[in-house]
C-alpha cells in the first residue's frame, strides 16, 4: 500500500494542505491505521521531488503556515497507472492467531490453545457485531459502509480460520468417536 498514491488520490479532487489531507484520510478510511503527521509531510516532500505534486500557495489561518499542494499532470498520470495496477496477492500472510495458538500448544496443552482461540473468536464476533451495526445504520455514509464491509469480510475470514483451528485442536484432543451419517 502506497501512502503516496493515497495522498495523491485525495488531492485529485483539488488542492489541500497536509493537515487537511490527514483529516480527509482518517475520515474516509475508517478502520485503517490513522496517518501520522510526520508521515504525511515526509510523503508530500517525496512526491514534490518526483514532480507529482506542486505547492501552490501558503494558507495562514490563525495558526501555522500551511502549504497547499496540487496534483501535477505527471502525478495524475502516475496515479492513473497505479489505480489500474493489480496488487500482488500477499504470499506471506501475517497470522498472529496461528502463532499464538502454536505457542500455546508448545507451552501448555490443547486446552490452553483452545481457550485462547475461543476468546479470540468471541472478540472477533463482538467486533463484527459493531461493524454490522454501523453498516446497517441507514445514516452511515457510503465510505464507512465500504470500510465496514471490508472489515467484516476480513473478520469473517479470521473467524472461519478460528473455527477450523478450534475443530482441529478439539479433534486432536478428543478424537471424534462416532460421526453420524448425516446427509443434510
Amino acid at each position: 500500500m502506497s501512502t503516496g498514491h493515497v495522498l495523491m488520490g485525495l488531492l485529485a479532487a483539488g488542492g489541500r494542505h497536509g493537515y487537511d489531507l490527514k483529516k480527509a484520510h482518517d475520515e474516509r478510511f475508517v478502520g485503517a491505521r490513522p496517518l501520522a503527521f510526520g508521515q504525511v509531510y515526509a510523503t508530500l516532500e517525496r512526491l514534490q521531488k518526483k514532480g507529482f505534486i506542486e505547492a501552490v500557495e501558503i494558507e495562514r489561518v490563525d495558526g501555522p503556515d500551511r502549504t497547499v499542494y496540487r496534483l501535477t499532470d505527471a502525478g495524475r498520470a502516475d496515479l492513473a497507472a497505479w489505480v489500474g495496477d493489480v496488487e500482488p496477492p500477499a504470499p506471506f500472510v501475517a497470522n498472529p492467531f496461528a502463532t499464538k495458538a502454536t505457542i500455546a500448544l508448545l507451552v501448555g496443552d490443547a486446552d490452553l490453545a483452545s481457550r485462547y482461540l475461543r476468546k479470540q473468536r468471541a472478540a472477533h464476533l463482538d467486533r463484527m457485531r459493531e461493524y454490522t451495526r454501523v453498516k446497517t445504520d441507514p445514516s452511515t455514509p457510503m465510505s464507512e459502509v465500504l470500510a465496514a464491509d471490508y472489515a467484516i469480510a476480513h473478520l469473517d475470514a479470521d473467524l472461519r480460520w478460528l473455527e477450523t483451528a478450534l475443530d482441529r485442536i478439539t479433534a486432536l484432543h478428543h478424537p471424534l468417536t462416532t460421526e453420524s451419517d448425516d446427509i443434510s
Binding site: 464476533l125 463484527m128 457485531r129 454490522t132 446497517t136 473478520l155 472461519r160
Partner: peptide, 11 residues
C-alpha cells in the same frame, strides 16, 4: 455464517 450471526445480540 458468522456475518449473519453478527446481526444477533448473542450467539
Amino acid at each position: 455464517d458468522a456475518t449473519v450471526a453478527a446481526y444477533g445480540d448473542r450467539e
